[in-house]
Computed example of a mutant assay.
Amino acid sequence: MFGKITGFALVLVMLVSCKSEKKKEETETWRTKKAAVENAVHNQLLEVEKEQGWKLLFDGETLNGWHLYNNPGSKSVWEVVDGELHSNANDESLTAGDLVTDRAFENYELTLEWKISGNGNSGIFINVQELPEVPTAWQSGPEYQILGAEHMDYNVPEKRPGCLYVFLPQQNSVEIKQGDWNKTRIKQVDGKIEFYLNGVLTAEEDLGSPEWQKKIAATHFSKYPEFGKTTEGKIALQYWYFETSFRNIKIREL
């Protein structure tokens, strides 16, 4: 009897010990992952990214490479705060408008992260033609939609986050992480675009096709002669009265 009890106790001790070791291992793994997230370095390129041809469009410290659409040199609502490109919606003395790259791009892959207020509305315009006769970026550039989860349009199919705004509903359903960072990827090759939100493909379109021109003709964008006509142009970040932040804006030309 004593031998059986001793054997049982030994097995019990071994089981408890294994569980403790497993818990310790899981705890250490969690701490390591948590520490990695907390100490992540933003707005910098890894060596492998440099080798792949990636470049920063935002250095985390300045607005170098960007300016207010049709209004360079103005004191705009766009500012850099704690390594984030931020739209200041609280200071009415600042000049409102969309932020546009200094140069144009044609075939490329763009990635960035964004965070927006609950009722916020923003977007990324591509193939923007910055011309005096075109007052705003959206009158020439198709839009990757960015929207807060509390916005009244959040569940409108053609206005969901990641959509090709107005033209296509999400190709695959995906939600944003409200109050946290979301990741956007945009790829354009010879006018063929792909939009991704948090790793999910949300839109595809051929901006060089006759079908695309027919789609434009069926919307209010038909009133703007420069809209969606080219497959090359500047990239713009939309300002729309609510706070939005961007970081880790990277591009590689293809």
Score class of each variant (00 low, 15 high):
121 N>F: 04
72 P>N: 09
62 T>C: 12
172 N>E: 15
104 A>V: 13
212 W>R: 02
139 Q>P: 07
215 K>Q: 15
152 M>D: 12
2 F>K: 14
53 G>S: 05
194 E>H: 07
183 K>A: 09
58 F>E: 04
86 H>M: 11
40 A>I: 06
132 P>H: 09
128 V>A: 11
94 L>E: 04
102 D>A: 13
140 S>D: 08
178 Q>W: 10
120 G>I: 05
61 E>K: 15
80 V>G: 01
210 P>Y: 12
44 Q>M: 06
237 L>H: 00
64 N>Y: 04
69 Y>K: 02
102 D>G: 14
63 L>D: 03
119 N>G: 14
58 F>Q: 05
38 E>H: 00
1 M>W: 03
26 E>Q: 14
72 P>R: 10
246 F>W: 14
204 E>S: 13
129 Q>W: 08
163 C>I: 10
140 S>C: 10
129 Q>L: 14
146 I>G: 00
100 V>F: 03
129 Q>I: 15
12 L>S: 15
192 K>L: 03
124 I>G: 02
71 N>S: 15
182 N>L: 07
40 A>K: 10
52 Q>Y: 00
143 E>V: 08
93 S>I: 06
163 C>L: 13
71 N>A: 15
182 N>M: 07
161 P>Q: 05
39 N>S: 03
174 V>Q: 12
120 G>Y: 01
230 T>L: 10
48 V>K: 15
43 N>Q: 07
165 Y>A: 09
222 S>L: 10
107 N>I: 07
31 R>W: 09
71 N>E: 13
115 K>H: 09
181 W>C: 05
37 V>R: 09
54 W>G: 04
210 P>V: 10
166 V>P: 00
106 E>A: 14
66 W>P: 01
104 A>D: 06
162 G>Q: 02
24 K>P: 00
176 I>N: 02
58 F>S: 04
153 D>T: 07
10 L>F: 13
63 L>P: 01
17 S>L: 14
7 G>R: 13
102 D>T: 13
203 A>K: 03
87 S>M: 04
230 T>S: 13
206 D>Y: 10
119 N>T: 12
126 I>C: 05
14 M>K: 05
83 G>I: 02
136 T>L: 12
130 E>R: 08
80 V>K: 05
20 S>W: 13
50 K>I: 03
39 N>V: 00
232 E>W: 02
36 A>W: 00
141 G>P: 06
247 R>A: 04
42 H>A: 04
246 F>D: 01
